[in-house]
Design a protein around this nucleic acid. Structure first.
Lengths: 360, 360
DNA sequence: TTGAAAGCGATACCAA
DNA sequence: TTGGTATCGCTTTCAA
């Protein structure tokens, strides 16, 4: 039988002597200075002699002080103003993102965080630049941007950061734009994942059709890259033949497909790496010939869920829109305060959905 | 060109007249009562005339007041004492859970939340009951328990709740124990998912081996149930032959397998629904005959990741241990305060991992 | 360069 | 049944 005195373990770091956590008052007392001075040191405000700074730091170290952020924000009346910049499209994935942003805005406003939304013309780099250049550091602390990748957009992001605003890229990265973080999946791996599933699901030789959104969408490009890599390495008997540029437009995609199928009668797999699935699904439902084609799409939405349920899609690669938005918020707040964050929690997973593991 | 005045949208609910959010002081002023009385009404404390209560409620409604939890917790000096009850095993999944609990304990202790850990003998219902019965409501606000399912454990959980302590079940549910929430995946769906992948990956007829942990582990039972369902419905040519009860013990599993393979020479798939993968992996690596068997395991751990990487495993069904622990904490805190929570955020996903979408 | 004191929004104790 | 007021941990004037 266990000793009744210690059948559980307390997991927080055991404090040495004191029971209560040290506060600014304790520091002031130990360092022999006033509260105001402690605050100056804590927040690196000017006008403190270096001797005094040292004394305070010594006390902080001795006591193992950790700032109570909630109390600090209360006193400071701190409000985080965060802006999401998204393409102004109707597609379901962006719609899901917007829904998440709106829902969380509601709750977060009780948590000193105000969310705003700005839209730019889809695939229009200049419009994104215009939006980004309008951002005013006096009323925004952080920006999350989901944008096509061009040098001009990268420069605009850099300018936003130079104003002292935290920036994360969302879904599609803008490397070398000096954004603080990227919030999204590793799209090369996502493409690889799609290829592996495709290769293992397909049971007859044939050709693979690849559908993309735009040449400037870095996420789509990276997916293509990963997809081709695994296809070449592991499934050389399958050939990736055509790449339809659908601009995330269901009708465009729907209108382009017949010709593709005429030119390539032996298609046995389709990887749709972009949005606009509605056009693809409509085409597949109307074409008996398409019945035993393995189809893999991106982003779990009502439409793609239905496609999985009815067997039109075989798998969907996805990223959780709720997680994406929460992650942006946490990272922007942390960056704005130069506070630490939990990388494990912010890693966005490459979700694989088949009909049996879909959420209800 | 957009109007420079409204190129973005503020998303929080727009307040009517006031700029600042209303506080208790505003309520007191509008209702014409004191701060203390507002507090009494807000926290449903006794000793207020119903007329007064009505006045205060009217003011609250008029102003659209929302309590500032951070400030409340500060004033209240509220500390959440949460206890995790886990089986005292060495297996990697439980180890990951423990690591997560320990890591988060560190951070959460700066957030007025203290985590503790209690261990019970694995698969030993009586020991779980003993641990649960020891829990003292004066020093714990919530309990997360990962336990086998027996009537006695269910009753013990009920007793814990009757003491006014919030309870969530973790990984393996105890329905009808009146726990407040279940934190984990839908294990029937997990089994279905494994079966679908298994069926689509296998390329030759043969038999399937099912490995479980214990008859009392509800999670394993549910996985079996889901697995059989899909196998029967969609892959009748594959027969699920044997069920090895491995008690999550690598050595036991390793020692049981040779006989199974002798009795069933035509095994083409293995679904390991429990822990103890190390024994299975060792066996598979040593047996050339096992080379083209499709193997699906549970829980992404260093071992199973390695098995995916080397092709010993074809897929892993998993649940994110970090998410599990965070979810327990959020739900226990919310339940302890009878505060609302976000169901979407607490839904634990059935993660599918193949070698291409593993985290690095 | 420093300190005293008044908040931030909410709770809680003591009187009335 | 009520109200006054100190307090939580931290920030921020305003004076000294």
């Amino acid at each position: 039988m266990r000793s009744p005195r210690k059948w559980w373990t307390k997991l927080s770091k055991p404090r040495l002597k004191v029971v209560a956590k040290p506060t600014v008052n304790d520091i002031a007392r130990v360092a022999g200075v006033s509260l105001a001075t402690v605050d100056r040191v804590l927040n690196e405000r000017p006008g403190v002699r270096s001797v005094t700074i040292k004394k305070v730091h010594a006390a902080i170290a001795e006591l193992g002080y950790i700032r109570d952020t909630a109390a600090a924000n209360l006193a400071r009346r701190r409000v985080y103003n965060l802006l999401f910049v998204l393409p102004d499209t109707e597609n379901e994935f962006v719609a899901a993102l917007r829904t998440q942003i709106e829902e969380q805005a509601e709750k977060l406003s009780n948590d000193r965080t105000e969310l705003s939304l700005a839209l730019a013309a889809p695939f229009d780099a200049q419009d994104f630049v215009a939006v980004l250049d309008r951002i005013d550091p006096s009323d925004t602390d952080g920006v999350a941007v989901f944008s096509p990748e061009t040098p001009s957009v990268r420069d605009a992001v850099k300018r936003v950061r130079d104003k002292g605003i935290a920036v994360v890229t969302l879904v599609s990265d803008l490397p070398s734009s000096e954004r603080d973080h990227f919030v999204g999946i590793d799209n090369v791996s996502a493409g690889r994942t799609a290829a592996q599933l495709m290769g293992r699901f397909i049971r007859r030789p044939g050709k693979i059709l690849f559908i993309t959104g735009s040449r400037f969408a870095r996420d789509h490009l990276e997916r293509r890259q990963g997809f081709d890599l695994v296809m070449n390495e592991e499934f050389p008997e399958l050939e990736v033949v055509a790449s339809v540029e659908g601009r995330d437009d269901p009708d465009l995609i729907h209108s382009l497909l017949p010709e593709v199928f005429e030119n390539h009668p032996n298609i046995c797999g389709i990887y749709s790496s972009a949005a606009g699935n509605e056009g693809l699904i409509r085409f597949l439902k109307d074409n008996r010939a398409a019945e035993d084609i393995v189809v893999i799409g991106h982003e779990l939405t009502p439409l793609s869920q239905d496609a999985l349920r009815t067997g039109v899609f075989d798998a969907v690669i996805s990223q959780d829109s709720g997680h994406l938005v929460r992650s942006c918020v946490r990272l922007l707040r942390a960056t704005a305060d130069s506070a630490p964050y939990n990388p494990a929690q912010e890693r966005i997973r490459i979700d694989i959905y088949i009909k049996e593991n879909m959420p209800p």
